[in-house]
Design a protein around this nucleic acid. Sequence first.
DNA 1: ACTAAGATTTAAAACGTTTGCAATTGCTGT
DNA 2: ACAGCAATTGCAAACGTTTTAAATCTTAGT
Lengths: 346, 346
Amino acid sequence: MASQRKTLKGLADRLDLSITTVSRALAGHEQIALQTRQRVAEAAAEYGYVPNVAARMLVSGRSGFVGLVLPIRGPNLVDSFLGEFITGLGEGLVKHGSDLLLATAPQGQDELAVLRHVVESGRADGVVINRIAEKDPRVEYLVERNFPFVAHGRLHNSGLAFNWLDTDGAAAFSEAFDLLYELGHRHFGLVTISEPMTFRHMREQGLRSAIDNRGDPDVRLDVVSAPRFARGDRVEAINRLLHSAERPTAILCLFDGLALTVLEEAERAGISIPRDLSVVGFDNLATAAYAPPGLTTFDARIRDCAREIAGMLTTVIQDRPSKPLTRLVRPKLVLRASHGPAPDPR
Amino acid sequence: MASQRKTLKGLADRLDLSITTVSRALAGHEQIALQTRQRVAEAAAEYGYVPNVAARMLVSGRSGFVGLVLPIRGPNLVDSFLGEFITGLGEGLVKHGSDLLLATAPQGQDELAVLRHVVESGRADGVVINRIAEKDPRVEYLVERNFPFVAHGRLHNSGLAFNWLDTDGAAAFSEAFDLLYELGHRHFGLVTISEPMTFRHMREQGLRSAIDNRGDPDVRLDVVSAPRFARGDRVEAINRLLHSAERPTAILCLFDGLALTVLEEAERAGISIPRDLSVVGFDNLATAAYAPPGLTTFDARIRDCAREIAGMLTTVIQDRPSKPLTRLVRPKLVLRASHGPAPDPR
DNA sequence: ACTAAGATTTAAAACGTTTGCAATTGCTGT
DNA sequence: ACAGCAATTGCAAACGTTTTAAATCTTAGT
């Protein structure tokens, strides 16, 4: 009846052994007689003993948790990759016996403060941060604090050395360009954002270097941009591109959100896709497959990335490698129906 | 340089006070002189003191965590509501200063074992469980163990008393029926699953009682079902309905996954939606808006539900109410273009 | 000036582990 | 029979906090 808390002492009493011995036996120390180890293991299983994490944390200084700070955006905005990302992290961590700790940063409140609290309170042995900004105080803090972390995303203009895994946006945009070039396209459009994010920089630069590599003077690139979250400006910028005197035959979009708008506006303007215009996005949103005629885009394989981030972080926590771990993951081109041969120039 | 771990003792030494006093001052005990409390608060802020959770957990027996066990499904299957659900939980928990603990159950492994481990190790003060099955060992375990938890979903055929929040599927299906009846429909189809899940039971029963309430003998209902995850069987069942001698004019689907297949198969068969056939789903998947012509469906407001679950669980943990907390949330009808007036019966 | 009551502070135990060191036990060789 | 050694096991401290009970300091009343 009186379901006592199951403690090491309780188990030791049953076995008529000391706490020390039982603790060591469970940990598998060679020091303890094999026979004893087995006896203890059996009794523990039967007794249903599970070590108290708090006590273990206190003495070992390790929590067995990996932290992730979850920013709350608008009331109707959910990070569309969160599910995938978390699933991947969980998958990766479970192999190493860690659990994931999610601390929420209340909307508008300082995400750094929450992160700092997680770190300082000893809640986590390491943290994952994502959506890295150009100048990210979280990175600065963690580096200075010398606390184990892996960033999903990198910085292209900072001297800070840290562990990161990033999507190879440059490679993707090069690949997209090559694909379209081979299909005869020469006049390209790029829809991008105004904010100086690293991922934007990388993707644009990938496109530009692919153009340079061709060395074809006929290739032309028109760029329009709009603030990241301003729907109105975005539509306006896209229409500027769609209705310019000489419309590009292929438009690359920094991410699917932009590409979907391009598809909509094209339809509204009676521009047939892919006959009159090819469109390529980036992200492979769930909706990308359904938005007619089916968006050709890149899949960043978030879940795989997250799984790998978990592995990297585990390594960092255990081995504290002196050199930063970095990894570029190549996104997967998803061919659908929004691209095709360049229209006849008549 | 030597960035000592910041402990209560360190702070006490600086202030020339005892650990006890500092602890109490920070906790805001009336007992401690107001002036002292202020002095301590200032010093703590300046020193950057953050209490060690492990120590606090150990002595208080509370972890400040709420647990959620995350089952890993197939390598390409991510719970489509996970992001929303977690965001909502996080939002709800942050108000009460709790964090969310995500323990992953490796694919195929016993989810119950992981849950038990979380509970017994004292990692969490309470847990949330979702996707409740008809006979759910997790519920049995938690009830017997008398451990605080809230279930997302309920059981309709069990005597167990526990806290739950569920979507009012019955109300939704009643509403859908009424909407379609008013539009002139009399011949209905229902696409459902073979497995005896509670949500299925509720939704079907909601539909049936709405039909009964009308007391109209002309109303007819044809039901087809297929195993939940068998794509082939699903298509076959749907086509049976679409190509029956007398085809229903309106089809209700247990969830959007089924409804999307109905839309596809209808298109393939040249059945125009909503002119020839009305279709209503349930879930409001991201893709529902894009699947032509836009699926009319119900939004379960997962994020809101999760936020509320967090609140309920906090109450349960703090107050241990003697009566179970239960809550039905009415899903929101999302009107799109897949429903319309019943076709002329010629 | 002295006492009692109230206000404020402190010492020490407890939470359940892990671990350095010491103690015990059992053997082996002489 | 006993020293010496290896193989086992156990004692006690430590981790950083909260909390019970006790100690100290003030102040007011006489």
